[in-house]
Design a protein around this nucleic acid. Structure first.
Length: 266
DNA sequence: TTGTGTTTTATTGCCTCC
DNA sequence: GGAGGCAATAAAACACAA
């Protein structure tokens, strides 16, 4: 039987039966089992009579009962019918009261468990948050380093391109002069000093070119290192900076190196 | 003493399982 | 269909500050 209305006298009786049992526990200790049951049946009649007139009163379980129930709950939080009857007999309670107590106890345990889980999750979240902020700080430091390196690189590039341009301009004017002289004085073609001068110009240009190769090399290496160690931290603009496209294919096997990226105006 | 918040006991309605 | 579990809720008991 599970359902009972509070207006039902039987239900009212059951609800007050614990107090009755508490009283019989206190007053009838030491009586024989038969005598005890006789008293119980008599009192049952009294209380069912009383219940029909007097409203139900909730009674809290005494310390001994609660301790025993807690102990049983620790062993197993579900209640088999046999254990329920046994406990009811031992503690002088109605089996239904035992069932209700276990039900409410499970509900309390679940609430506590939820609180514990929430605490654990919160602690994990805080730890993760701390980790994230540490990583963010490290990332900022690294980004600053990259920025400084980029600035350094662009300074070096500007210097190099200026000197190469200068060189280019000088050699062009030399060529013009040489063509001009060719047009006017063919005898100079046989002058060994002119040849030497041209060779020295070529040698100088070659040197500048090699500097550019080295610059580009370091830039590509830096980019590769950055990509290897910080692939997920690279911003799109940084990725384009270190892309092989922009490194002018200096080290491409299939394509000869060109200088177009350093001389966009040419 | 009393108002108020918390805890405990009990009920109700719904759901699942056998 | 009955038994039992669970969530939501009522209501009594209790704790405690003002």
């Amino acid at each position: 039987m599970k359902r009972f209305d509070s207006s039902d006298p039987l239900a009212a009786f059951i609800s007050i039966s614990s107090s009755k049992e508490e009283r019989t526990q206190k007053t009838n200790q030491g009586y024989s089992r038969d005598f005890q049951s006789m008293l119980d049946s008599l009192e049952e009649e009294d209380y069912s009579e009383a219940a029909s007139h007097v409203g139900e009163k909730k009674r809290r379980l005494n310390l001994h009962q609660v301790k025993a129930l807690e102990k049983n709950f620790e062993v197993e939080n579900k209640l088999e019918p046999e254990r329920k009857l046994k406990l009811a007999g031992e503690l002088g309670l109605q089996p239904r009261q035992i069932a209700i107590w276990f039900q409410n106890r499970r509900a309390r345990w679940k609430t506590k468990q939820l609180e514990r889980d929430y605490g654990t999750l919160k602690a994990n979240y805080e730890a993760l948050k701390l980790d994230y902020s540490n990583l963010e700080q490290k990332n900022e430091v690294l980004a600053q380093e990259v920025k400084e390196l980029k600035a350094k690189l662009s300074e070096e590039n500007v210097d190099s391109s200026h000197s190469v341009k200068e060189e280019h301009r000088v050699s062009e004017s030399d060529n013009n002069a040489s063509v001009h002289s060719k047009n006017h004085d063919f005898s100079e073609n046989n002058n060994p000093s002119a040849i030497t001068r041209d060779h020295s110009n070529i040698s100088s240009s070659h040197h500048e070119l090699m500097n550019l190769f080295q610059l580009s090399d370091s830039r590509v290496i830096l980019g590769n290192i950055y990509q290897v160690y910080q692939p997920h931290l690279m911003k799109p603009e940084e990725q384009s900076l270190f892309s092989t496209e922009e490194s002018c294919n200096f080290f491409s096997v299939d394509q000869a190196p060109t200088l177009h990226c350093y001389f966009p105006e040419h």
